[in-house]
Nucleic acid binder design. Sequence first.
DNA 1: TGTACATCAGTGAACGCGCGTTCACTGATGTAC
DNA 2: TGTACATCAGTGAACGCGCGTTCACTGATGTAC
Lengths: 244, 244
Amino acid sequence: MSAPRSARDRVRQELTREILDVARAHVARDGAGALSLRSIARELEMSPSALYRYFSSRDALLSALILDAYESLADGAERASAAAFDGADDAADAWPAVPRAMRAWAGAHPHEWGLVFGSPVPGYEAPQATVVPYTRLAAALVRPLVEAERNGRLPPFPGDGPAQALADTVQPVADALLPGLPTAIVAGALQAWATLVGLISLEIFGHWRNTVLEPDLLFERAVANLAGDLGLTPGVGRPTDRAS
Amino acid sequence: MSAPRSARDRVRQELTREILDVARAHVARDGAGALSLRSIARELEMSPSALYRYFSSRDALLSALILDAYESLADGAERASAAAFDGADDAADAWPAVPRAMRAWAGAHPHEWGLVFGSPVPGYEAPQATVVPYTRLAAALVRPLVEAERNGRLPPFPGDGPAQALADTVQPVADALLPGLPTAIVAGALQAWATLVGLISLEIFGHWRNTVLEPDLLFERAVANLAGDLGLTPGVGRPTDRAS
DNA sequence: TGTACATCAGTGAACGCGCGTTCACTGATGTAC
DNA sequence: TGTACATCAGTGAACGCGCGTTCACTGATGTAC
């Protein structure tokens, strides 16, 4: 299925990739709304109708592009996560890796970041398949929490436990990504997610102009703060008596 | 200047408003990219060329619309802030008012939220004039911090002071909105800003679907967390010996 | 109060444009025997 | 290895569409005297 059988298949696969590459470049230059089959065909020096051999419509192409963006982002995050865990003896040390990878990817692909986290393209439904890479990304982000918990290195959460209603509200996330962790941490992870997405979006979409002069300094500070909020104190952890 | 002098002026002002209203509705239905002078003219039962008496181009109309969105958001935030400070004897109690107002506004005007915080419209520069309402909004958000500082109710910040580089990076914000407050708080305020924008965008743009079942519970929790991070502990404050 | 003129709102036709998609076709590549 | 047929990539013309913007115009509203 993935291995091309005939020369025809091989060419087809190649051209499909080429079309996607050109389309990606167009989105990067003019935005998703301006994506046009005719302009892609022009650049590839084929007739517009020929594209219909590869994508059944403009929307199908756009869907493929969006899915691609999700996957590229998730790949980057997973690579960074793996590398961080490879060298670190403490889960907390690995925490900044995925946030940094997200920001780096956004800097390299600003319009694709917009496809993923920006205002949705009007009258347009993102393909269902995006949940898979989206989940991979989220899982990579919270892996330090999961590891810390497994090693008994998460400090017990102080103060009043959150209400049951909050636990119910974040249950899908708890079940899928952070099973067994306290609600306060699940909610904290979601808040951290929002903070990262907010920081990166504000930077990429130009809101820091004349406001935050060196965004990476603020970003690093915030990432460190988030680690603290989540109980991920770097260095030697103090194992607690919580059940693993 | 603001008071119409002749009947002609009055009608002109009215129609201008009507055009903006229709345009706003179209943006809400189809997105900013799909905004079309001809469709607006059709709905108003005038010829397309007539619109040029009111706006010099499609882009001018879009700019007016974007500026409008910023101003409507800032107005909402300021109203909420004023009301909160009116009834509260403690600055910390007023903290959630502006975040809630932002979220409420976004819920009521999702596409306009997208105009302000979503991916920028391609090939399009937001009008310079947006800095004024943007600053009004930010000022309303951080007013509890300013008040708490003035009343000597901000606890001294623990731990190692942030590096000078971070102070330099956030200096424009410190100067304009939080003069005299420690860098840690200025950075914290920016992080809170990003968290709020991230939370609201993720909710409005549909990322919480099947993930966070009741977004307002998570939002409230996060807003409370942010208050804690910023040293805004509600209730009776403990004045410190810091200079006012 | 009335007249002469300037200002301005709005019309309707026209411009040139690029778009997505369909369709009948040609010719090359693959497959079965 | 060779032939007959099926599959598929790509062409080129055409469809109908809606768009922003310009321009010469008509007629109503305002202004100066």
